[in-house]
Nucleic acid binder design. Structure first.
Lengths: 143, 143
DNA sequence: TTCGTATATTTGTCACACTAATTATTATTG
DNA sequence: CAATAATAATTAGTGTGACAAATATACGAA
């Protein structure tokens, strides 16, 4: 069934538009961060004070990418790197008060932006999508 | 239903893995091109001799990205830019014989790579996925 | 203890996405 | 016909993704 090949085009195209739409709204509303930086802030909020390796894993980024995103968040004073007392190789990434505040200030607006994509779709659609994407994801495990 | 927000994480994660897996196989099998370069070659094969603007549209790329991919394909001698006789602002992108040959040589292997993702999924799943992704895509039309 | 290996992070390089600005050409309008 | 607007392609700048290599530290085995 060669036409199934189209899934890769559809996936790539849709993922890019989702990100582009969100970033466009972030810019219009002057959130001052990127979509990927937001994902890291949310991860920190949810799991709190992780090492970069753990944070990368939970957020689905690789470590070099996470390093660079954390660099940007540090320069915006939204997070800080703290020494890890039990392992001097690693850092603990910690939300600053400004970071906490940013999350509180943006959460509602960002939920609204995200939900724009879900118009005309329902619970069953979500379950389908989640199952199919997870299947693809595990089918392609390289390791 | 705030949990629907996860669709963006799932989409991004899956699209990246699909691309990463394909690129990994491209590298192992020494195809000598990237996944995105392949998408442009296939677009040219299908539609033949388009301007860069048209090619970008059909392939779902923006114009600056397409310019750079075409640059790389030109340097690999797989395509060439030809003057457009009716509009001196634009080029016609044309597959070279080497480009045609590359497509013929790789098509079967790439179909096989693509189908790895589809294990344990069926026709209905494809229809679901296509409908849901297309709905999201059109929901987020910025223009 | 010490040597070798594993791990956390960083850095470098190439490719791609998006935006804005530039250049050359074409189309329009006054 | 000249001035202006629109368009195709490019370039520049920033952010992200993947991979490999480098660095510093931790851990395990001899």
């Amino acid at each position: 069934m060669e036409r199934y090949n189209d899934y890769s085009f559809l996936l790539d195209r849709t993922a890019r538009r989702v990100k582009q739409y969100a970033q466009y709204q972030f810019n219009c509303q002057q959130f001052g961060i990127t979509v990927d930086q937001w994902a890291i802030l949310k991860g920190l909020k949810q799991y709190a004070d992780l090492s970069q390796k753990e944070l990368a894993e939970y957020c689905g980024k690789d470590q070099p990418t996470l390093t660079r995103i954390v660099d940007l968040l540090v320069s915006k004073k939204l997070v800080e790197r703290q020494a890890n007392p039990t392992d001097r190789r690693s850092f603990v990434v910690h939300l600053t008060p400004a970071g906490e505040q940013k999350i509180d200030a943006l959460s509602d607006s960002i939920n609204k932006i995200r939900m724009e994509a879900w118009k005309k779709l329902n619970e069953d659609d979500f379950e389908h999508l989640k199952r199919i994407l997870d299947t693809i994801y595990t089918n392609l495990n390289i390791g």
